[in-house]
Structures are given as C-alpha cells and as structure tokens.
Design a protein around this nucleic acid. Structure first.
Lengths: 126, 126
DNA sequence: ACATTAATTGCAACATTGTCGCAATTAGAA
DNA sequence: TTCTAATTGCGACAATGTTGCAATTAATGT
C-alpha cells in the first residue's frame, strides 16, 4: 500500500462518510464538508480511499458513483455483494444487508459486484 | 402508448439489438448499423424502445447504459430482475439468467432493478 | 395522387460526471 | 531546518447523455 498523508480535506471527507447513514455522491460530500476543496481533490481522495479498501464505490442506476464506508468489511474479508437502494425522490443511496451470490458460467471470473435497486423509500413513498 | 412510425434507423437499431448476443451500448449500436444516423437520434430511439417496453436498459458499473432486447419479457410480465455480466476486457455485457429477489424494508417500493457483475469472461480470462 | 398532421430527425448547444497533466503546496521523515 | 514525495488547485479535456428548434418525413384521410 502506498504511503499516505493526513490532510484536512481528507479527514473531512472521511468524517462526512462516517457520519452519513447512506452512501454519498461526490456532490453530496462537497456540500457536506465546510473546508473548501477542489472538485478534483475530492475525487482523488475518494479514489484513494477505494484503493485502500477504506470505502467502497457503488455505481447507481443514474450512472453516478456513490461512496460508502466499509463498515463490516474489515471483518468479513471485504465482500460487497449486497444490494443498495436508491430513492428516486430524495436520492439517498443506502445499503440493504442482503448478501447475494451470483452464479457465473464456467470460465468466468468476477472482480466486482454492483447491485442497485431504485424506487421510493418510506419517507418519500407517502 | 404513443403512436410510432417506422423509420430506417429505427429498424436498423432494433435489428442490431436482435442480432446481438449481448447488450449493446449506444456506441456499439452506432458502429453496427450501416445507415448513418445522428448520435442523438439513436439515443432517442433507444429511449423510445425502453418506454415501449421493447428493450431494457442496464446501467453498468462503468456508468454507461447498455440496451438489450426483452426476449422473454412478453411472457413473464416484464421482470428484469436478473444480473448482467460485463467483461472488463472485451466490454461485452451479457445476461445471466438468474432471477434474484431483493428484500426491501417495509414502506419501500421498488421500480427498477439493476444488477451488474463485472470481471473477465471465458474468452478473456485466458 | 395530394394535402395534412404529427412523429422523427439532424444539428448545435448544453449539463454533468469524471479524469489527467502540471506546477505549486505541504505533511512527515531525516 | 531541509528534503522528498504525497497532495492539492487549476485548467483543460473526454465521454455520456439530454434538450430546443427547425427541417423531414411517414402515415392517415380526402
């Protein structure tokens, strides 16, 4: 693993993800952190977090990337084979803790799982 | 359902999807069809096909949209709750016929399923 | 065959998302 | 403090997808 430094922006991004109860897009993060930081920097920080296995990336069905802390990954060998739910109204992306195993044809090798279900969450479903 | 017309481009796009053994991105379609057509037109045709339930849209983990004919949907009430596999090397996106049911928290309503697994297909895995 | 009407197209412009190169900062170690 | 490499900010860029609007054109009726 490459050597890392501690910077204010980095800490702020991490904190925003830790406080969040759902996955955050780059835009949401930028709005959350008070310290002003360049768009590019935040993207780079997030990519670094992903590389380091600190955070995992979800590509939702809006084509956008969302990021969430790997809360239980340290323990269980870093699997992200669970679904996420994206609310079409409030844009919240949250984890559904339902592990899924996908059967692949022989000879296939998988490196990434990305399952997103979208619809309306309880708050927005009224 | 809105009234539709038959045009050459539309037919060509549909044919390219029917001939394909996998889901196609807009770009792949444009390369496949001989008739020259504007990028915008193809996007609009594909959106129309989706609206009409002729085709379904997959958003892969590269953030791009892929389109595939609804082969078995006429019959079984139009569910797309199966996974797709995207090869990181040859970019092919194919259906995995494994139906998945996702358990949602109460009060949630889902309108769209989007499951993509990526990795290397048999041909590219060598 | 012709006229009418509305669906479709092409073009330009635009928004958004995400990445990259490069010079300037800056955290952490010596 | 000094050095080195990680990080940042800025600008530019690529890619994807959408929209407005004028021009075509397929399908319908006469």
């Amino acid at each position: 693993m490459k050597k890392r430094r501690n910077t204010a922006t980095q800490t702020a991004v991490l904190a925003s993800l830790q406080e969040a109860e759902s996955a955050l897009s780059h835009e949401m993060i930028q709005e959350k952190i008070t310290a002003k930081a360049d768009r590019t920097t935040i993207y780079r920080i997030l990519n670094r977090f992903c590389d380091d296995g600190l955070v995992h990336r979800i590509v939702a069905d809006d084509g956008k990337q969302y990021f969430a802390i790997c809360s239980e990954c340290e323990a269980n060998d870093h699997r992200h084979d669970h679904f996420h739910f994206r609310c079409l109204n409030c844009d919240k992306v949250e984890c559904l803790d339902q592990e899924v195993s996908v059967n692949l044809p022989t000879g296939y090798r998988t490196t990434n799982f990305n399952g997103v279900v979208s619809g309306y969450c309880r708050a927005c479903n009224a």
